[in-house]
Amino acid sequence: MSDRNERITLTIDGVEISGESGMTLIEAADAAGIYIPRLCHHPDLPPTGHCRVCTVTVNGGNGAACTRPVADGMVVENDTERLNTLRRNLIEMTFVEGNHYCPECEVSGDCELQAVAYRLGMTAPHYPALNPEREIDGSHPDVFIDRNRCILCGRCVRASALIDGKSIFGYKYRGIHKAVAVVVTDRLGETEIEATDKAVSVCPTQCLRVKRRGFRTPLGSRRFDREPIGIPERE
C-alpha cells in the first residue's frame, strides 16, 4: 500500500478537505465530518463495495467512495439530488430483495438499512417485492441468523475471516440467488461461532444476532429513532 504521509486536498460538493494518500474517499470524508451514505462499509473492516450506496461522482465518473483511493485535486459530488435518488433506488432494491417487515421487526429503530432509508427520505420501496423464501437458523445456543433481513453486505464474511480468524461465513451461488454461506452445511450450531465474535456485532440489519437480547432497549428509544444515522465511530 502507498504510504499515508502525503497530504492531499480534494473537494466534496465544493468544500475543500484534506486527506492523506492511501486513504479511501469515505475515510477522508469521515475524517472531515462529511457524511456519505453507506451500508456495507464498516470502519473496522476493509471495504468491498457491495451495496453501492456510497456511490459518488468523482471527476465526472461514478464510483463507490468506500473503495476509491483519494487523489490530490479530486472533485467529488456527494449530496446531490441525482445521487440521492440513485441511493434511494438502491435502498429500495435492498428492501424488496429481502423480507424487511419493520413493523414486526425486533431491531426496528436499531437497523442501519432502515436508518439510511430514513435519512434518504424513502417513504416505501416502490419496486415489486420479490418475497424470497429465506431460512432462520437457530441451531446455535447463543447466536442466530434470520436470513430474511440479510442484505449481502458481507460484513460477517470479512469480520469472521479477518478479525475472528474463523472463516465461518462466505458466499454461495450467484445473481439474485447469491446468499451468505455458513461453512458447508449452513448450520451455525456446527460452527465455532461465539456471541462475542466481531462477525456477530457488525451486521447492519442484525440478521446475525445474539439470542435473548431482543427488546432490551424499548422501541422508540433506539439508536435511530430520534437521531439520523451519521458517520460511524471506529471501535
Binding site: 463495495g49 451495496c51 420479490l130 450467484r174 445473481g175 439474485i176 440467488h177
Partner: peptide, 21 residues
C-alpha cells in the same frame, strides 16, 4: 444478464432481476 450477474453488488444483482420482470 440477471442469470449471469455475479451478485456482488446490489444494483446489478437486484436491478437486473427487477428489469427482467
Amino acid at each position: 444478464f440477471a442469470e449471469e450477474s455475479c451478485g456482488w453488488c446490489t444494483p446489478c444483482r437486484v436491478g437486473t432481476t427487477l428489469l427482467s420482470r
